[in-house]
Amino acid sequence: MKSMILTMAVGLLLSAGNLLAQDIPHSHVPSVIVNKFSAQFPKARDIDWEQKGELYNVEFELGRNVDHEIWYDKNGQIVKHKEEINKSSLPAGVTSTLQRDFKGYRVDDIEKITEGTAVTYKMELDSFTKDWNIIMDARGKILQQNAD
């Protein structure tokens, strides 16, 4: 009985998730958003659109398989932009914190996240004994640190 209830609960949660974020064809994205996206990222490829509530989310690649994810509002304004970056692109404050507090860790899966004027850096830090998911601001202040 418990497993049947659990199965039903999981099914309902998955259904609710599908209602919140749905893949949509390019033709269903408002033209103001498509026009701004095309102007800002003319070389984008592997483009996938979703609608999440009132926001339009696009995932795409630029350059040599550099992943990007952007959320647009209905007026075509960027609300949030995640982009994959290299360790060499991290600001000096972040690099300094990594060298001081995480010596010996391998830095992996780095994302630069821009929301309005706020820029943060999300990354995985891996070692033989412990792994972390870290978010820092550009000065290297740790905003969030969770064991992985």
Rank of each mutant, 00 (worst) to 15 (best):
K2A: 12
K2N: 13
S3M: 13
M4E: 13
M4Q: 12
I5V: 09
A9C: 13
A9N: 08
G11I: 02
L12R: 06
L13M: 15
A16E: 05
N18F: 14
N18H: 14
L19S: 14
L19W: 13
L19N: 13
I24Y: 09
I24R: 09
P25I: 05
P25T: 09
H28K: 09
V29S: 01
V34C: 00
V34I: 04
N35V: 00
N35S: 10
K36P: 01
S38C: 00
S38G: 00
A39H: 01
A39Y: 01
A39N: 04
K43M: 11
K43D: 15
R45E: 11
R45M: 05
D46I: 02
I47C: 03
I47Y: 03
D48Y: 12
E50F: 11
Q51N: 11
Q51Y: 04
K52P: 02
K52Y: 05
L55M: 10
N57H: 14
N57Y: 10
N57L: 14
V58S: 07
E59M: 08
E59L: 03
F60T: 05
F60E: 04
L62T: 14
G63F: 07
G63N: 14
G63I: 04
N65V: 05
E69M: 12
E69T: 14
I70H: 11
I70K: 11
I70S: 11
Y72H: 10
K74T: 14
I78A: 08
V79R: 15
H81V: 09
K82N: 15
K82D: 15
E83M: 15
I85W: 08
N86P: 04
S88C: 07
L90G: 06
L90P: 08
A92D: 11
G93C: 05
V94Q: 03
V94D: 01
V94N: 02
V94T: 03
S96L: 10
L98K: 06
Q99F: 05
Q99Y: 05
R100T: 13
D101V: 01
D101I: 01
F102N: 05
K103Q: 12
G104K: 02
Y105V: 07
R106T: 05
D108N: 13
D108V: 12
D109T: 05
D109W: 08
I110F: 04
K112H: 04
K112I: 01
T114R: 14
E115G: 04
G116E: 07
G116T: 08
T117E: 11
T117S: 15
Y121H: 11
K122M: 07
K122R: 12
E124H: 14
E124W: 09
L125M: 06
L125A: 07
L125P: 04
D126V: 14
S127D: 05
T129K: 11
D131L: 09
D131I: 06
W132Y: 15
N133T: 00
I135A: 04
M136C: 13
D137G: 08
A138E: 11
R139D: 13
G140S: 08
K141A: 12
I142K: 10
I142C: 06
I142W: 04
I142G: 08
L143S: 01
L143V: 02
L143R: 03
Q144D: 00
Q144P: 02
Q145D: 01
N146W: 00
